[in-house]
Amino acid sequence: MNVIVDTMKPVDDVDRGGEATALLSVRGLIKHFGSSNGLLARTRTVVRAVDGVDFDVMKGETLGIVGESGCGKSTTARLIMQIIKPDLGEILFDGEKVGSTALGLNDFRKQTQMVFQDSYASLNPRLTVEDTIAFGPRVHGLPRKAAVERAHDLLHRVGLEPSRFAGRYPHEISGGQRQRINIARGLALEPRLLILDEAVSALDKSVEAQVLNLLLDLKDEFGLTYIFISHDLNVVRFMSDRVMVMYLGKVAEVGPSESIFTKPRHPYTEALLASMPSMDPDHRTEEAPITGDPPNPINPPPGCRFHTRCKFTATLCANAEPALHDVGGEHLAACHLANPESGHPRLSLA
């Protein structure tokens, strides 16, 4: 039928863990960035970019990750991709620990790829479009001719005519087209998991919609699993089966998309949703649902990280850190209010 499917191994062979095993499991992921103040200074400031994150990505689903700038979304993506090394925690892919003998780093990288936000910076200005896409397959030993053929096929798939675009350089094409090329490069190794880090954030709305639809089509066609990182709630709702909300390097809430968007259980998620511009002139957003900047991740507040901006804050919140609590339907929230046994004063009021 086509080059990609022809060369793909039967699904059973690829799918080691079976249906029930999560494609990606992240366990206790921690990454602190230290910056020493100069050569002789002994004091070190530590940015807790990702501070104990656990989540699963099931096969064939799209997990959306949302949060403000600096909440650790991109760091999480880079940690998964092994671009940066985690301080602590492990990443399991299809039941195997990444970097173990069962699943080497190169094996894992063939199965997990990433699309970057900046469509310009992520393409080498000196390489033609086809060379950029063919680079990955060639690294993994595909002969040049076959790799170029695959690149042409992928260009076709992402809606770019190979005969017109294959020999072009990045500066000769538009932002939307560049992002399509980035997606084609991400697919060139026939991955099972594609991490989209703000992949459409830099595009204008009409192009964004095209690229989102393309991503949905490709997902069906290649049986992909997505991690979709964005700060745009509408886009995340459109794309995701499940959504994870991050705040200051921690998971605030995670659950099925509909449940998160209609019945948020974490005050931070509520505030985020309330901050979405209303489409209804009769229900304007009158007051800012959340004020101030997120606290400095260098010195995150003790207890619940959100208590400094939360309208339901109590003494308990400043002292005890809430764990993720299941509120039903695989919907988890890290808020004392979501846990009836937490002893939050507002719970006894109700």
């Binding site: 990288r109 063939k110 992520s122 993994h140 490069r185």
Partner: peptide
């Protein structure tokens, strides 16, 4: 640059 990171992600050796 992101394209160097993308190349690392694709599993290329430092030399390549």
């Amino acid at each position: 640059r992101d394209y160097v990171e993308a190349a690392r992600v694709s599993g290329a050796s430092a030399f390549t």
